[in-house]
Design a protein around this nucleic acid. Structure first.
Lengths: 273, 273
DNA sequence: CAGTGGTCTAGACCACCCT
DNA sequence: GGGTGGTCTAGACCACTGA
């Protein structure tokens, strides 16, 4: 039991939140009601505002839903409705397939201009470069090409190419936190056609992705998927007008207290080779 | 001035929120600080919790950012980082292009099985069916096919095909609120090749979209974009493990207090013709 | 140091839902 | 009516930031 926010140093609402998170994962099913705010107040010996803070967090995460006059309930999972920063391996496993990889290339080289720009580095900066054929249950699915600045993870490929580059980055405290991807459709090149063992259709889906860990770009990658074996699911939010701040500050941007955290740079197009 | 939450019947935090929203759009630029919580407390004669509730809402929306010990600031706009439920016309205009449409087909017919399933209806339900060639600055970009249940909007096509189907739906209180889209790459059919005036490459990007207004599916649409002229930008969130409710309820689902609001149905694949 | 946001209390009244 | 969440008060102490 997680009774009494006994953990010293921890905030009380964190204890309540943890209790509710545990309840949801171990006791309750979708649609079940959680204990009322007032009963949680007594259970943890905290004020109602504190309980509400804990619940608010879970509501914002989409785990719970409030219903005035009725209670607070476990929300239907929206996990599958979010486009996530996942890797080929994770995605394949999630769909019940066994992922595989064949390393076609593994080297260290000076970053070409396009790669350097995507990584916010100078052209020629040393980068790891890995090209892999990805398979699912043994069937070729995509050719994947990745670039990672050497200075971020000098020993990244010392023991060969890791099964998961994302996992290898995480081990080095470069946890991928967000990313941006551009998807296009194109004809496969003869090399791709052969590597992917495509017959009949030539159509492939190309993706170019920038992966960020914290503020820095940690990886740039391009992939080429068989058009007949791969699709992307995208949830779409309402296109409601957003609050837009005033365009021109009264003076320059001197003394600006915070820095924009998400540089709006696009993924550069064009061939990196 | 929006002084004193004077509007009767309105909640106080709504007045504060409106004041701040107005500030952001008319006075402040990205990075500027908003008035401190305590000064807003005095300005509106409300308690600090009320002020915080107003600010919380804007922080959750991504309009503001808090920084402990420093203040609360206008956040950089994230508008372009969200995949939105937009239409071809809106997207084209956003990119500075002039959208156009040529109606290739406009009829009313019984829904084929695939369409009916996507719309959560019985096969054979009467649906409007529209096929249009979409252009940007006069250049063919895509062939777009849409199905809308007749009973939702019987007079939808009485005055010809509206410029924007979404706008037409909104006029009928069927505002599109969310959607889901599946993207694939494929070879163009000979008809598509001709309609899109494609030469050289045959690759197209196909999308299948279900659009929801409230709880019901209001439209199913498929589009076929020229691979060389169209790309999709997708922001990727962190793949952090989500809280998953317990799988099996202790008994059946009788007495379930809330209904799952987002049916996890996938977009059916296959040809609707 | 003064000022900011972060957390927290112990109440209160209201609107809403279900029985 | 009794229980639920929604809003609100008038304080309090803390941690952090920047001058």
């Amino acid at each position: 039991m997680v009774r009494d926010g006994a953990r010293p140093g921890e905030h009380k609402y964190v204890a309540v939140r943890a209790y509710l998170a545990d309840l949801v994962t171990t006791e309750l099913a979708v649609g079940d009601a959680i204990p009322s705010e007032r009963s949680l107040t007594e259970k943890f010996g905290v004020s109602r505002m504190t309980v509400r803070q804990a619940i608010d967090a879970l509501v914002t995460e989409g785990v719970l839903e409030r219903a005035q006059g009725r209670g607070t309930f476990v929300a239907p999972p929206r996990a599958d409705f979010e486009m996530r920063l996942t890797t080929f391996g994770e995605e394949a496993r999630r769909r019940g397939l066994t992922p595989g990889a064949t390393v076609l290339r593994c080297e260290q080289l000076p970053a070409p201009a396009v790669v350097a720009e995507a990584l916010d580095r100078e052209t020629g900066t040393p980068v790891h470069h890995v090209v892999r054929l990805r398979t699912a249950d043994g069937n070729p699915m995509s050719v994947e090409e990745s670039w990672i600045p050497v200075d971020l993870a000098p020993d990244l490929l010392d023991d060969g190419v890791p099964d998961s580059l994302y996992a290898a980055l995480r081990e080095r405290d470069l946890d991928p936190t967000w990313g941006e991807e551009v998807i296009t459709a194109a004809d496969a090149t003869p090399e791709e056609l052969e590597a992917l063992q495509m017959q009949g259709s030539r159509a492939v889906m190309r993706t170019a992705r920038r992966t960020f860990g914290g503020d820095a770009a940690v990886m740039y990658s391009r992939a080429c998927y068989r058009g007949d074996r791969y699709s992307v699911f995208v949830p779409l939010r309402e296109a409601r007008p957003t609050l837009v701040p005033r365009a021109r500050p009264s003076d320059g941007d001197a003394g600006r207290p915070v820095q924009p955290s998400a540089p709006p740079g696009r993924i550069p197009e064009g061939s990196p080779r």
